[in-house]
Design a protein around this nucleic acid. Sequence first.
DNA 1: TGAAGTTGAGAAACCGGTTTCTACGCGCGA
DNA 2: TCGCGCGTAGAAACCGGTTTCTCAACTTCA
Lengths: 346, 346
Amino acid sequence: MARSTIRDVAAHAGVSVATVSRVLGGNYPVAARTRTKVLRAIEELDFVANAHARALSGSSSKLVAIVTSSMNAPFYADIASGVESYVSVEGRLCMYVSTDGDVGRELDVLGLMREQRAEAVILVGGVAMTPEYHDRMARFAHGLASVGGRLVLCGRPSIGPDVPAVVVEYENEGGAHAGTSHLIARGHRRIILLGGIPGQTTGDGRIAGYRRAMADHGIPVDESLMMPGQFGRRFAYDRVRERLARGPADFTAIFALDDILAGAAMHAVRDAGLRVPEDVSVLGYNDSEIALDLYPALTSVHIPVQELGRTAARLAISQRPGDERARVMLGTHVVVRDSVVGPPGR
Amino acid sequence: MARSTIRDVAAHAGVSVATVSRVLGGNYPVAARTRTKVLRAIEELDFVANAHARALSGSSSKLVAIVTSSMNAPFYADIASGVESYVSVEGRLCMYVSTDGDVGRELDVLGLMREQRAEAVILVGGVAMTPEYHDRMARFAHGLASVGGRLVLCGRPSIGPDVPAVVVEYENEGGAHAGTSHLIARGHRRIILLGGIPGQTTGDGRIAGYRRAMADHGIPVDESLMMPGQFGRRFAYDRVRERLARGPADFTAIFALDDILAGAAMHAVRDAGLRVPEDVSVLGYNDSEIALDLYPALTSVHIPVQELGRTAARLAISQRPGDERARVMLGTHVVVRDSVVGPPGR
DNA sequence: TGAAGTTGAGAAACCGGTTTCTACGCGCGA
DNA sequence: TCGCGCGTAGAAACCGGTTTCTCAACTTCA
């Protein structure tokens, strides 16, 4: 069964290629009898149009790309899922690519998307805001715009007013403020801040939110309770174990900057012979699915991931001209479950 | 900044389009001076080749698609990640699409991939082996083959010798046999089998493995301990709670057919006032990352997801002619952690 | 009955690359 | 000096669709 072209179909049906194309497109009047002939020929030859040829002449590729640093992380998976569901309903194809957090690979990927004449590229996740990054993004945004594409930044801050990019963010600083305030309201004063990468936008924002909440309540920050560094199970477990090995617990709560860290912290607390939440309360961030699976179920700062994805997708393929410079900020809030109670002795 | 074409570059550099194409391709000798001129012109015009035009003439689209029922599930995410990393190193683009488990949408997606002239389509996940499914897949496999593509089935059984598709599977029956045997070896006799969708290949295979292991050890299967139905946190929790509400535990272990179910089962056991693993041992399936986050860390049947993905990708873009009818079966094994001990009173 | 309007369909240009075929200039051996 | 091979580069065909332009046939109305 050889691949058949639109010319084969035309010959088989005894019409011209233009007519076949019109039947395919459905945007030009074709007599019912002719249409039937053409459709039968398509059926008999098992003809499928070539998307590349179509994109080449039609100039619209119907392709939206989403780029994250990792495909395994549930946080990114949820956003990608939101993007994909929206985009596919709109008749586009979604290309989900990851970069392993490698800057070189990110550049390669962006180049490929320009080659594909992607309708939009959605870039997801926190990042270090260096001048190099800024330059790179500005250049890419212009390059993409020059071939008719649009850049969408999702969960990372705007690049500047002169750059053609739309932005969907969520509250990092605000979410951490709300989370910390939640712990303070339950009576906690000595709260470990665990994880997050200093210098990256997400980590910095959350750390700032923690500090602001403490200041708002007039609680001085004990710098020895600040334990940033990275996102990672091992890191969180080791830091908490070390802290507890040095002597009796001098804190009553842990605010972990994502749910994986929170899970690891709970392990460490229990392996040290203490209970969660009776001896130590634990608060997570992201409110990913794992929050429900941990025991006790994890109280966590909720990020509206699905909405983040859908909003990014909507902005990506929106036709309205006003949207080009849009900037959307989504709110976060604390989802209360079982891992946070008052401090012991109250 | 208008989009520039290869003809603009040629004019700017004072050469022919053929020469520019040769510089781009790098597969034909071009004098060093000429190449330099062309490269400078490309730089100055910020030229990026159009992938569609290239695919149209070159006839190879360099595009591999992976299709799963959901993007959120860690199991699929891991496989997709394995595929993507392999495929991108080989210079291809990876298109990750999900169908929400909707058969109609799966058909749509497969049609789109044929339009894209995808080099390969990787279809992931268990499925109900109905005659309709068989027909549909056979037709699609032939259709894809007719435009030069290849169908790869990943984690679902072969479709028949007459269909051009390669298969990468993992041991469902064998893994469940190993898991059940592990529990029996620790002294368990009354083991709940929790979850899995009867009629789908993955669920059926695992249930068969359970039964065979019980038979091998001469233990009659108490049908009231068989609790299949679906995959889902809520389902697992409710079933275990109900069972424990009816009276004292008449089982000493739970074999959950995935790790999410195992997590939910542990919740139910504890909420009923029993301990894990002292009173009830719990065994999971998949060995997904969550197994490490649960407390106690979950003993689980390991599926080599990354290898599954990489193998699927390798078969998808392999050049060797012998591989067209390949069928690979990957092994599974039990990863021992802390959620399984002997039954109480031993 | 003839002029104007409407409907349906074909011919050909075009999208932006790759590749084949052709041709030119030059060094070299006969 | 002639003819041959080799290294470069250009002209043009081609990939498979879409779309514009053109035109024939059939209505409709005066």
